[in-house]
């Protein structure tokens, strides 16, 4: 008994580490969000909630709105691209599945910055697409393919797609195919069988993927920074700006806290939704 107590101590250094370098910084950030900025960018230790009120300023409200729109569109396009891909992989032979999964995962490990930059090479005015189109004589002037909200969306879907494919694949893998066969035996068309049987049974995967993609896109600042123009700044860029150029740390902290609460709320809803869904499936 005494010996297992000593094994428990093994977790202590890690707990102290995470407490000092994760919990404490988060608490400090929360505290800072209730302070105010001094004239020279220093922090004035005076409790107030002005920073949170300022978030409702139409200027920031608009950016928050844009961020949500981009996040929703990124999620929708990721489902549209990711579901068929995951479905295809789940129907392959086991050995091929492993290879395809690895191929989907590899780009995910290459960093956002490099992957966004790769798109700049392709889309910029003297880039690959424009050079090809011009040499074919299809266009005279280079097209503006970069530095707009469209290019940001392409970059976001591109960088976050693996987040969608994997959870959907997992739920397709765990699906009970006998139910699908039953649907066919009862005369369902392939489309009907997919819509009424496969899709509802893989709902968990779609929801998990959507949460992962959505939460990652609302905090994203690299893709808009590299591929977006001045008008396509998202909330992540505003926060980055408050800390680096504007030097308004308290306001930047308040924005971060709101962003984090939004993410946590979504994750919480997700757990509630999947637990309720799981219980229902169990009783059925």
């Amino acid at each position: 008994m005494l010996k297992t107590k000593r094994i428990k101590l093994l977790a202590l250094p890690t707990l102290v580490w995470m407490g000092a370098l994760f919990v404490l910084p988060m608490i400090l950030m929360l505290a800072l969000s209730f302070m105010e900025r001094g004239t020279y960018g220093q922090v004035v230790y005076q409790f107030n909630i002005d920073n949170y009120i300022r978030i409702f300023d139409p200027l920031y409200g608009l950016i928050f709105w844009d961020t949500l729109v981009v996040a929703v569109l990124t999620t929708v396009f990721s489902i549209l691209c990711g579901y068929p891909l995951a479905y295809y992989i789940s129907r392959l032979e086991k050995s091929k599945q492993q290879i395809w999964l690895l191929l989907v995962m590899i780009p995910f490990w290459i960093n956002f910055l490099v992957r966004s930059y790769a798109w700049v090479i392709i889309l910029r005015s003297q880039g690959v697409v424009n050079t090809i189109l011009q040499s074919l004589g299809l266009i005279d002037e280079p097209l503006t393919l970069l530095y707009n909200s469209g290019s940001v969306l392409v970059g976001m879907v591109y960088t976050l797609l693996p987040f969608m494919v994997l959870p959907i694949y997992v739920s397709l893998e765990q699906m009970d195919y006998r139910k699908l066969e039953a649907a066919y035996d009862l005369g369902a068309t392939p489309w009907k069988a997919f819509w009424h049987v496969t899709l509802p049974m893989t709902k968990t995967g779609v929801v998990t993927g959507s949460i992962l993609v959505f939460v990652s896109s609302i905090g994203m600042f690299v893709v808009p920074d590299v591929m977006g123009g001045a008008k396509s700044a998202l909330i992540g860029n505003v926060i980055q700006n408050q800390f680096l150029s504007a030097r308004d740390w308290p306001f930047g902290s308040a924005l971060s806290i709101v962003l984090m609460l939004l993410s946590l709320l979504l994750i919480l809803l997700y757990f509630k939704a999947t637990q309720a869904g799981g219980a229902k499936e169990g009783s059925a």
């Binding site: 995470m18 994760f22 404490l24 939460v215 905090g219 992540g236 800390f243 740390w249 971060s256």
Partner: peptide
Amino acid sequence: IINGLIYLPIVIPEIMLGLALLIL
């Protein structure tokens, strides 16, 4: 509690951890 402490840094946006550490 320990699991929460472990999974939280994975699920919150990365920029948060960077900023919080900068503040610390």
